[in-house]
Design a protein around this nucleic acid. Structure first.
Lengths: 101, 101
DNA sequence: CGGCATCCGTGCCGATACTG
DNA sequence: CAGTATCGGCACGGATGCCG
């Protein structure tokens, strides 16, 4: 997605949560708090492992999601929202209201 | 963009306002009420005529924007938000708040 | 279990030109 | 003035397979 133009904070927000699965991922984490990779996979039918990983990486890079890894075998990974990510709640809620009309 | 899956109203909303210029277009219309095509073009530097037209069409199809044409020569066209579109205000505002942190 | 690498189709978006 | 037509690049996203 090239560069947007401007001073427009909307696009700032939009770019970070645009992406086919970012919305649902954030919603799931808002509802369930902390989730394992597999758990997210189960809760997001239709989302491939690849896409889940990609979008999670984006969200981590954006500072919205925190990733926690335990160095055991097999590996266990947990994802949760950062404070910044939790602040998205009102945004999500408004979108939800509007979308369910 | 295949189909999304689900019952997820977020994606409903996200899909309709995703698109490089839809956010800024909606914002402009929220601020200025009714706008001519040229006016929008001026207010959205970087947005080509083509993209402006395409995204406006999408928004009209989505029931967010109303288009009004006077059959004079030369043609005058005006765009404004529908009631449905105006209900996006809280969504936009929340996104704006979050994006400007 | 939780990824990353690769291949590849589709669609978004930009540039340019033409029209009523 | 307000669009549409056409072309073409490139990123997004799906399918599949391998790895620590």
């Amino acid at each position: 997605m090239a560069k947007a133009i401007e001073n427009c904070p909307i696009d700032q927000t939009l770019q970070q949560i645009a992406g086919k699965w970012k919305g649902p991922i954030i919603m799931t984490l808002l509802e369930h708090g902390q989730c394992r990779f597999n758990e997210l996979e189960k809760r997001l039918p239709g989302c491939s492992r690849r896409m889940l990983a990609l979008q999670l990486n984006d969200l981590v890079k954006a500072g919205i999601v925190a990733k926690e890894v335990t160095a055991t075998v097999p590996v266990r990974t947990s994802y949760s929202l950062t404070p910044r990510g939790r602040q998205l709640r009102p945004v999500i809620e408004e979108m939800q209201k509007w979308g369910s009309v």
